[in-house]
Amino acid sequence: MLILVTGASGSGKSGFAENAALQFGQHVTYIAAMKPDGADAQKRIDRHRAMRQGKGFHTVERYTDIKSLDVRTPAILECLPNLLANEMFSPEGCGAENAENEIAEGIRTLAEKCGNLVVVTDEVGSDGVTYDAATEKYKKILGSLNRRIARAADEVYEVVCGVPMKIKQEGRSCTY
């Protein structure tokens, strides 16, 4: 089972996604893609750590190349926008040209190994702002990846103010 969870920042999607992943069993791997670069990132990481403390996750920090991750338990990948930024912009990443296919393939492979995988993503294209070329490219690839993963997913949710809206169920769009 592949579940995609999207929503704005601060919408409560991580909490929802964690609980969704925990329904798959007691041993759930938490794949953390956010690099602890700077105080702001560290603060977010600390907040997420506190949030999942006691929930029994086994945390794996992985910033790039999820394809080669060997996880054999249900898992949650938090989150796609960080993973994409790492692949596109960090020295260890595979670069902007390869990032989309590399990640799409990585998620497909990972979902197979995990059996059940929850992927957390983000909505970044609703502010009407046109950014510099690199950022626009990032937005475009993230949008494209979101669609590819949603297509492959069994369930898709958009979380709004903490309320999960189910927009795909049993492999079919359930809202139109």
Binding site: T121, V156, T175
Partner: peptide
Amino acid sequence: VIRVVCGIGVK
């Protein structure tokens, strides 16, 4: 009216 999210149309 349809709002598209991750390629999925939400009516």
